[in-house]
């Protein structure tokens, strides 16, 4: 029965049948071994190797793959594209979702309908979101592209780098607003009404209450969403890029995740692709650790 010393994350009433436990853990550990640990370790190993595209000769090259990456202008450009794209997408998403959540919190009639419609993009695949926006902004047939042409803007994401980046940012934002919106609405709903009522009695209007009371109180949620938006922008937008621009024109939308794929599967530069994977792993690790901090901070904010 219960052990003498308390182990963390173990129920007080528990079973002591190691063989059963091993059996229960087996499927998860086997799948993780095959599709998580071995690939991750291989990526790490491969990033220190240089192989010709046919895999005939392999050479250990220490950090050459990494130094080559940091010297390559292409990689620098890819980093900048990723940073701009992710920043713009995160800020836009959070700001729009914030305004919508504030409005949803205020209205009573039709609230359910608004929520239902605003949630729709959650169901839509990133690739399809990309395709929908690519059509709207298609310079030959798209209605928005046509509107832009009539007011004298020579819109063409196939040729113009800035246009392509704007297009993928819009598609990525449209797809992701619903996620931030769900969390913000839930966070606003969970605020203790007594605090807001007290502020109202003191003469604070709805906007003032939102900015001075609600916003600071939901700041842990905002922090969490900022991290999640970065994760989304860094890793989950592959499908949008591939469906809309394929990293073009001339690398203008070639974000880091897309470049890993391009170098690994199209250019067959495995060493460089692995080194890029390792760098991405480090950034993912940083983001996850930031996210764990959120869990701790949330405790402090609970009233």
């Amino acid at each position: 029965m219960a052990g003498s010393r308390r182990e963390s994350g173990l129920k007080r009433a528990h079973f002591v049948e190691p063989r059963v436990a091993a059996l229960l853990l087996l499927p998860q550990l086997a799948i993780l071994l095959l599709f998580f640990f071995i690939p991750s370790i291989r990526a790490l190993a491969q990033s220190f190797l240089l192989a010709d595209p046919f895999g005939a000769r392999v050479q250990f090259v220490w950090f050459d793959n990494f130094t080559a990456l940091f010297r390559s202008a292409e990689y620098h450009e890819s980093i900048w594209v990723t940073v701009w794209f992710t920043l713009a997408q995160s800020i836009l998403t959070l700001a729009i979702a914030g305004v919508l959540a504030f409005a949803t919190d205020r209205v009573i009639r039709l609230r359910g309908t608004y929520k239902m419609v605003l949630l729709l993009p959650y169901a839509i695949a990133p690739a399809i979101a990309g395709i929908l926006w690519a059509f709207l902004f298609n310079p030959a047939v798209g209605p928005i592209a046509h509107a832009l042409h009539t007011i004298g803007i020579g819109w063409d994401p196939n040729l113009n780098a800035a246009d392509a980046l704007i297009l993928v940012t819009l598609a990525a934002t449209w797809k992701h607003i619903c996620y931030d919106y769900i969390f913000l609405v839930a966070a606003l709903l969970a605020l203790p009404p007594s605090l807001l009522e007290a502020a109202a009695v003191d003469g604070a209007g709805p906007l003032r209450r939102f900015f001075l009371i609600a916003l600071p109180m939901i700041s842990p949620t905002i922090f969490f969403l900022t991290v999640m938006n970065f994760v989304y922008g860094f890793f989950d937008t592959f499908a949008i890029i591939d469906a809309v621009t394929r990293g073009g024109p001339a690398g203008a939308t070639n974000i880091l995740v897309y470049k890993v794929y391009q170098d690994g599967f199209v250019n067959l530069d495995l060493g460089s692709s692995a080194a890029q994977s390792v760098i991405l792993m480090l950034s993912a690790l940083t983001l996850t650790l930031l996210q764990f901090r959120y869990v701790e901070r949330k405790v402090n904010y609970d009233v």
């Binding site: 095959l34 599709f35 998580f36 071995i38 690939p39 991750s40 291989r42 990526a43 491969q46 994760v231 890793f235 989950d236 592959f238 995740v257 890993v260 794929y261 690994g264 599967f265 495995l270 692709s273 692995a274 994977s277 991405l280 792993m281 993912a284 690790l285 996850t288």
Partner: peptide
């Protein structure tokens, strides 16, 4: 680590 960051080695697996 999200799956996207180890595309190539996972493919090999």
């Amino acid at each position: 680590l999200p799956v996207e960051v180890r595309i190539v080695p996972t493919f090999e697996s």
